[in-house]
Design a protein around this nucleic acid. Structure first.
Lengths: 227, 227
DNA sequence: CAGTACTGGATAGTGGCAGTATCTTCTTAA
DNA sequence: TTAAGAAGATACTGCCACTATCCAGTACTG
């Protein structure tokens, strides 16, 4: 199909398709002449994925390129999963300069907290993981706001995060050895977050409403509570 | 204190402090003369909160202003919680035009799925909640990618989201009737998400690594699994 | 009490990002 | 053979989050 039809099928303007090609998110079409190319279903699917990663996943164009590169280089199942896991940008990277006084101290303390949490959860994660630094920075910032995010508190969240990750990986593993693995894996790894965030917001809304009406009854009605 | 000291204490450039004032995120200092003002600890704290909401929470300046306005208008505990819950921006708002054919159909079907999910979870949420539309749009997009996010699948995530929301609200409720309630509430409601996302990514990393080494052992070691 | 440094406020400028538009050269179907 | 696209290169736009400059007014300094 021509680029105009690709545009029509996906709803992405021609100029944007060209832009994605320039930025390396979309492979070129099969050239049929010096100045003509043919696009196929894989381009349609790729554009859908690009849109999902950017609008739902909130990824930048640059991050999307990196993630898609990992998808394309998929060799083994594990390698694919790992590559995608690292290609995804770490939310919360840059923090502030702050008053810089004992920044190093606070940073080190926060990182130690994270290390302890990881040990408590029995997670196997290399010290070099960017997520460790990200979480440490987040905790430092929260601590500065007098928010109570001590490790004991965090464990409850960590256990829920663990359950979510298990659900995610189960879903990704279902596509093991399928050619669609890499694509489904990136969907699961990159888009579960935003979806979960929406569910969390809905659940929060419910909790807030319950407080409003029952007010001083922290217990719940029938039919809820996981497990 | 003068603006320069406020800047030094918080690490925020003077020009940015002025910018935040202009945008209504930061109240003006107490005027001591026609062209001089005095800032206090509340300004320091407010700047910390602004930084946390923008860098950790990923909120835009406009969204931060709205959230802070809700914090400042805090009257009752419940009102505060509700105002903040609605002031937070909905991730995933704008979607695509797409091929527009049966967009309306798909949209309606997705929204029905969400309604069914909410009923199944026994959540009390008004039909007008922006999160419902947001989730519906997210599901439609995922469905288009052939990702398996049927309601049955979603329930498992929803239950976990419910648990998280309960943890969050418990923490916020601990500050009930405290003058810091609104502030702590906004921290809990707005910043739990990013923190959880980091934890989820760490947990994902662990799961991926476990697959790599044990490969075909989906069961786990000791010390994990929530409840 | 002059000089300098600093202040709050208004306004203008900057840099990055994600597209969007234009221009030129080519291809092809009517 | 000519008008309607197509492909690619390059330039432009709009938004956002700052950042810099300018101005009149204040305050410490010696």
């Amino acid at each position: 199909m021509k680029i105009s039809e690709l545009s029509r099928r996906t709803g992405v303007p021609v100029a944007s398709i060209k832009y994605f090609r320039r930025e390396g998110l979309l492979p070129a079409g099969r050239a049929t002449a010096a100045r003509l190319a043919e696009y196929g279903e894989e381009h349609v699917q790729r554009l859908r994925l690009i849109k999902a990663l950017t609008t739902l996943g909130g990824l930048s164009i640059a991050a999307t390129r990196d993630v898609l590169a990992a998808v394309d280089q998929a060799e083994t199942t594990d390698g694919t999963l790992r590559a995608i896991s690292y290609a995804l940008p770490v939310p919360v990277t840059a923090a502030s300069a702050g008053d810089a006084e004992r920044d190093a101290d606070a940073e080190a303390a926060a990182e130690a907290d994270v290390t302890r949490l990881i040990a408590a959860m029995d997670w196997k994660i290399p010290d070099t993981s960017p997520h460790i630094r990200g979480l440490a920075m987040a905790l430092r910032e929260l601590r500065r706001l007098d928010a109570d995010y001590r490790p004991e508190r965090l464990v409850a969240y960590a256990e829920l995060a663990h359950s979510i990750a298990r659900l995610d990986l189960e879903r990704a593993a279902a596509f093991d050895d399928s050619p669609a693995l890499a694509e489904q894996a990136v969907i699961v790894l990159a888009l579960s977050g935003p979806m979960l965030e929406l569910l969390r917001r809905l659940a929060q809304e419910d909790q807030v409403r319950r407080r409003s009406t029952l007010d001083d009854n922290p217990e719940e009605g029938p039919g809820d509570g996981p497990r």
